[in-house]
Amino acid sequence: MYEFEQIAAALYLAAGVGALLGLVLPAPRMLAGARWGLALGAVFQAAAFATLHRLEPAPGLTDLAQAVSVTAWLGVLFGLALFSRIRLPGFVPVLGFAAFLAAFGATLSDPGEAIVGEGNGSIPHAHVLLASAGLAALGLAGLAGLFFLLEHRSLKRRRSVARRIQLPSLEALDRVNRVALALGFSLLTFGVVTGVLWNEARSGRVLAGGLHETWTVVAWLIYLGLVVLRFVGHQGARHAAASALAGFAFLVFAVVGIGIVS
């Protein structure tokens, strides 16, 4: 139900604002509270997904706004899993605000606008879920990459200690980048495979030649190259961070942007 999604959006917004204040003031308790806000928001968003089919008309999972909302939800879940192992204070406000925009956007969207048409069976749902999960994990890799570049730059400029907001350590950010890239690429691969299977079921062809398919496959090939460079080619941490950020920007354009532009 949209009520649940709106509650989730409100909780995400509160978590984002709380985390930002917690970082700026700084107030560690506020930051810890923001993490709980994110977790509670994820619970309400899960309830919203579980009750979406009761809406009239029910939005499909392949609806763009709902897919973005699912991606944000999975991003929050991945983020919470990471927070339990690694200290990543700067991630909470970004995740909070991103999840707020996604959840709130889903409540305003027109259920008729689907990114791809519906098909038979569970393959479309598996495709959307896997691709969304891949996008969420690669988004976290990109975010870690962005923070890494900022932290690296300030350390090189020797201004890091004078900064008001402390970012996570370079080592932690590199670890997040590595884990999220491996996880995200695996999920994206499954997403692409299920997309191919869906295409084949609908049109009897592996690639339908649509913009979405073509650009996503190109994005997957780019990520394949990044994974090879990172895990086989011993790419340096700064280059890996920049690659993760650029790769995610391209992926977002390939999956979402191209549909909007065309």
Binding site: R87, E151, L155, V161, L167, S169, L170, E171
Partner: peptide, 11 residues
Amino acid sequence: VAVLLAKQIFE
């Protein structure tokens, strides 16, 4: 300051 810098580099 050196300790804090080390913490910004290492987990």
